[in-house]
Simulated assay, not measured.
Amino acid sequence: MRKKGTVVRWDGERGFGFIRGADTVADIFFHIRDYAENRHPVEGMGVTFDEIHVGGKGPRALKVEPIRNTIQAAEALREDPNAVILPRAKVAPRSTPPHQSKREQQLLWGTIALMVFWLLLWIIGIALGRFPTIPVFSSLIILNLVTFYLYMRDKNAAEEGQWRISENQLHGLALMGGWPGAWFAQRVFRHKTSKASFQAAYWATVALHLVGLLAWLIWPAFQSAPAS
């Protein structure tokens, strides 16, 4: 049986919120992927939903749908008790603007070029004897797998309303060399991609890591240069 309730909290950045109903004991968690509309929900919106319980984590709402024009109807009826509220027309899905798609493609190819440059620096360092081969590649693989896993874990924690992994920890892993794994995790899980401050800090760690790696490679050349 479908239940009715009101959205009492919505976190647009993390994509989840809570619903409160007259016949529910606790507020009910729901995620954006369980919301049936193209537009994001807003606090105070009336909704209908199916309630489930999963493994002692509390109630969860599925197939969340807005009660048509609940907010607009309340405002209109306050102004005019005889107002007639018509059903809201469904909004067609928005297509990605051409300029945005082009920018995303440029970012994709730019990031791939950075990864190739990054791998090239490590290979040059190994060839020059600056880094041991097996320990370096083993450490890089493990570091990026750990980074990818922690992004996945943080995404799940955000959806379930559990304890989050700090952004400083994620940035620290990227700075140490886990930034490729972080980039792939952001795209696979659609996590942290819309938060401008996080993205700015992330790309700053990428730049610092590449500059530090490049400086480590060329530093012996400056030390061995004859003094004028």
Score class of each variant (00 low, 15 high):
159 E>F: 15
156 N>D: 12
187 R>W: 10
67 I>H: 07
105 Q>T: 08
191 H>G: 07
142 I>P: 05
60 R>C: 01
19 I>N: 02
46 G>A: 14
34 D>R: 11
220 P>V: 03
100 Q>K: 13
174 A>I: 05
28 I>T: 04
42 V>D: 10
27 D>R: 03
160 E>F: 13
159 E>N: 14
201 A>Y: 00
59 P>R: 01
106 Q>C: 14
58 G>M: 02
194 S>P: 11
37 E>K: 09
18 F>G: 00
170 L>R: 02
151 Y>V: 01
180 P>Q: 00
212 G>V: 05
85 I>A: 03
216 W>G: 13
149 Y>I: 09
48 T>L: 06
44 G>T: 04
78 R>I: 06
222 F>P: 05
69 N>D: 14
157 A>H: 02
172 G>E: 03
225 A>Q: 15
31 H>M: 13
141 I>R: 04
33 R>W: 12
21 G>C: 00
92 A>P: 10
60 R>S: 06
224 S>I: 11
228 S>D: 12
97 P>L: 07
186 Q>C: 09
124 I>H: 08
102 K>N: 15
8 V>M: 00
135 P>C: 03
2 R>I: 12
64 V>S: 04
196 A>Y: 11
28 I>E: 01
136 V>S: 13
81 P>W: 01
16 F>E: 09
222 F>V: 12
61 A>W: 00
143 L>M: 05
20 R>K: 10
21 G>Q: 01
74 A>P: 09
22 A>G: 12
129 G>C: 10
50 D>A: 07
114 L>Q: 11
168 N>W: 08
158 A>G: 01
102 K>H: 10
138 S>N: 12
76 A>G: 02
76 A>D: 06
141 I>H: 02
120 L>H: 14
136 V>I: 14
8 V>W: 01
49 F>L: 06
100 Q>F: 13
216 W>A: 11
29 F>Y: 09
105 Q>C: 12
66 P>E: 04
97 P>N: 02
167 E>C: 00
13 E>N: 10
11 D>T: 07
73 A>D: 03
174 A>F: 04
79 E>G: 15
137 F>Y: 12
16 F>N: 10
52 I>K: 14
130 R>H: 10
193 T>E: 13
64 V>K: 03
206 V>Y: 01
25 V>E: 11
1 M>A: 14
162 Q>K: 10
33 R>P: 14
178 G>N: 03
97 P>A: 04
109 W>A: 06
71 I>L: 07
65 E>N: 10
216 W>C: 13
113 A>C: 09
19 I>L: 00
69 N>E: 08
168 N>K: 15
219 W>T: 13
92 A>H: 11
152 M>K: 14
98 P>V: 07
91 V>Q: 07
15 G>K: 01
167 E>S: 00
115 M>N: 05
33 R>K: 12
206 V>P: 13
106 Q>M: 08
59 P>V: 00
186 Q>K: 05
73 A>P: 04
166 S>N: 03
112 I>D: 03
25 V>K: 15
208 L>D: 15
178 G>R: 08
21 G>E: 00
151 Y>P: 05
145 L>S: 04
131 F>S: 01
95 S>C: 11
148 F>Q: 02
214 L>W: 08
165 I>Q: 01
23 D>G: 05
44 G>H: 04
70 T>M: 12
225 A>F: 10
72 Q>D: 15
198 F>V: 06
178 G>H: 02
128 L>P: 11
199 Q>R: 09
